[in-house]
Design a protein around this nucleic acid. Structure first.
Lengths: 225, 225
DNA sequence: GCGATGTTTCGGCCCATGCCGAAGCATCCC
DNA sequence: GGGATGCTTCGGCATGGGCCGAAACATCGC
């Protein structure tokens, strides 16, 4: 058994309203900047910075500097599991913290696609040699560029932009990467335009249309029950 | 997702050294009195009482009054799971909090037998009509008294003592009851004396000997892989 | 009944910690 | 370079909450 003082220290990190709020937001998946988290928790940036430093040194968060932003994320799946187990204890006046099923299948993550579907898209393209994965992110192969072009994505324009081309965005519910960055946003935009996907009336949920189902099956060999 | 304020409140209950210590002790399984927990946590009885009231109203503990003692226990398996998940996060300088496998099979609980083996003994005796279970505890049937006597237990002496005859002791790893109280202690004492069981070199672990294995099989029809 | 033991309630002290204003770096964009 | 933006560090304030002494209440054993 862990020494109880460590357990207490760990739990006390979670046991502050502002920090709990930050952790809850980070449970959603994508990393968030210090400023966003400060607004999430309704505290000043200084205060948030202090909280984040505590969570970081306590091993609950990881951080990555990107320009003048610092992106914080949960340190790992055990952290999410522990938070979830804890969440199950709170009186059931709200839905449990685990990812709700519809969101789990497909949802937007900022402006790109996440969930089972988002991961399947990335992995399907990789399997067909359309996409390559590296440390920094994804890259389109020449056939890949052609492929997305016929979906209506202007690849050349994306590379001109200032935004990262295609980040590997860790998918929380799937624990695998989906396509973020400029390419991810463009793909999502096209898939909505082609009516392969439709936004659910509220929230971040995304629905796969009949056209989408047959399209993914035909062009990438992807299918779902 | 639960409202983060609830998550924070819950975690802050665990996030105090004294309370974390109490919870850790209660993770071991048997309920403990307020006084024991106060000593466990190295705080005064008043302070402990305050902590226990908080844990109780937070739904982490349950309590049962028995004479002038109040026995506290974890409120349920979800609580144990959450604590365990949290325990997994603390740096691994100690063994994880989950019940280690050897302890899970057989261990002493104070002076009597717990774990899979302890529960199997209780249920095996019940199935054969040797033991009866009621609200207050277990009772031996006449054949049961005869049975334990031939193991060398002086039943009559046990009833003279002041100690409860045979408490139902909730087994944490099994979530079912094993035999505590005077009878539980006497049974364990005899089983060690008969060399059916042997103590592991350190800790509360108990090993089933070859004689024990054949003995339990022969006399109670109990067997394990 | 009476004393001993176990537990809780009350009251007050005091420290740990969350909070923000001000200031200091770092980075970006023009 | 200069200004704007994002983030952190520092310092001081205030309050929440843990702690214990004292005392009340309950139960046990005589």
């Amino acid at each position: 058994m862990p020494h109880p003082i460590d357990l207490a220290h760990l739990a006390s990190l979670i046991g502050d309203p502002a920090r709990a709020m930050m952790l809850s937001r980070l449970m959603e998946g994508p990393a968030r900047t210090a400023g966003e988290l400060s607004r999430d928790a309704r505290v000043s940036p200084q205060t948030a910075s202090g909280h984040l430093a505590k969570l970081l040194s306590g091993g609950l968060l990881g951080v990555e500097a990107q320009g003048r932003h610092r992106y914080y994320r949960l340190a790992g799946p055990e952290v999410a599991r522990a938070l979830e187990a804890l969440g199950l204890l709170v009186p059931l006046r709200a839905a449990p913290m685990s990812t709700p099923e519809p969101l789990r299948f497909a949802r937007t993550c900022y402006d790109h696609l996440a969930g089972t579907l988002g991961v399947a898209l990335a992995e399907g393209m990789e399997r067909r040699g359309l996409l390559e994965s590296s440390e920094e992110g994804f890259a389109l192969t020449p056939p890949g560029a052609e492929f997305v072009a016929h979906w209506g994505v202007d690849v050349e324009a994306l590379t001109r932009g200032r935004r990262a081309f295609a980040k590997r965005c860790l998918d929380w519910s799937e624990r695998r990467a989906h396509i973020g960055g400029a390419l991810g946003a463009a793909l999502a935009e096209r898939l909505f335009a082609m009516r392969w996907l439709a936004r659910r009336t509220e929230g971040r949920g995304v629905r796969l249309t009949v056209e989408g189902r047959t399209g993914f099956e035909r062009e990438l060999g992807l299918s779902w029950p």
